[in-house]
Amino acid sequence: MLAYIVRRLLYAIPILIGVNLLTFALFFVVNTPDDMARMQLGVKRVTPEAIQKWKAERGYDKPLLWNSQAPGAGALTDTIFFDKSARMFVGDFGRAEDGRDIALEIKGRMLPSLAVQLPNFILGLFVTIIFALTLAFFRATAFDFWGVVLCVVMMSISSLFYIIGGQYLVSKVWRLVPISGFGEGLDAWRFLVLPVVVGVISGIGSSTRLYRTIFLEEVGKDYIRTARAKGLPETVVFLRHLLRNALIPILTGVVVVIPSLFMGALITESFFGIPGLGSYTIDAIKAQDFAVVRSMVFIGAVLYIIGLILTDISYSIADPRIRLK
């Protein structure tokens, strides 16, 4: 198990270098350092000297990937890529264009993101599994049929509609909680209720349908017949025999997103004005702030790799047949 985790972490290194190179290449295919300087300085009244000065101050006057003038190892290290991207491997994210420390910013914004995402995730999983299990229990009845119809209707509606509809109904008409914003400490709960509820509801349709299919596939298996032949009540057959086996495929899609919960949700945070990492990323993309974008992509990749490793570990816990080597 330990050997397995070590090996997977070693595999992660080339993946992360690749992710970095790719983000770097994509960004600089669209933008040159000159474009970045014009954007930051304002498009009007910009002189070539001002651009050169801006680039020199921030280290964007170097070659992108290969410095043929620098001696020895400097050919690789004295470049924009090494300065800006490779240093993230030691946790140095540098500064955003407005001069703020990115690492500090991320630390501060993680908690609000998590405050929305974690309850959303746990509550959503709980509600959809119970709903799907109930549909599978009453399979091939009218309840099952209309349940599936409801799921299809719910998954056909855009998540933006749930957000706007929720804000209109709950905040504007009923005036129960504020439309958007965020508070300090425990006071934050008033701002969290609506995004969490909206998040759970918008996810019910597709997840329920997926889990129901997984449950129905397990219902037809031989070991379920054995459990019934033992004279066990149907509830025991479902909760003790079926659920544990069905959890194995469900884990695939679920565990991998857990670390990414820190990253926040792009749209939800923008709409509800939550100062988390999701809105931070959106703002950085709008402002063409390469330093922030590359940091967020890098962290996203790291968290995703951790998610995949966690998925494998959770398999080995849920399924005794799987031993990680």
Partner: peptide, 13 residues
């Protein structure tokens, strides 16, 4: 008792 002992037992218990 059934034909396929391999699938008739619950694999995770």
């Amino acid at each position: 008792i059934f034909q396929e002992p391999a699938t008739s037992l619950n694999p995770v218990l």
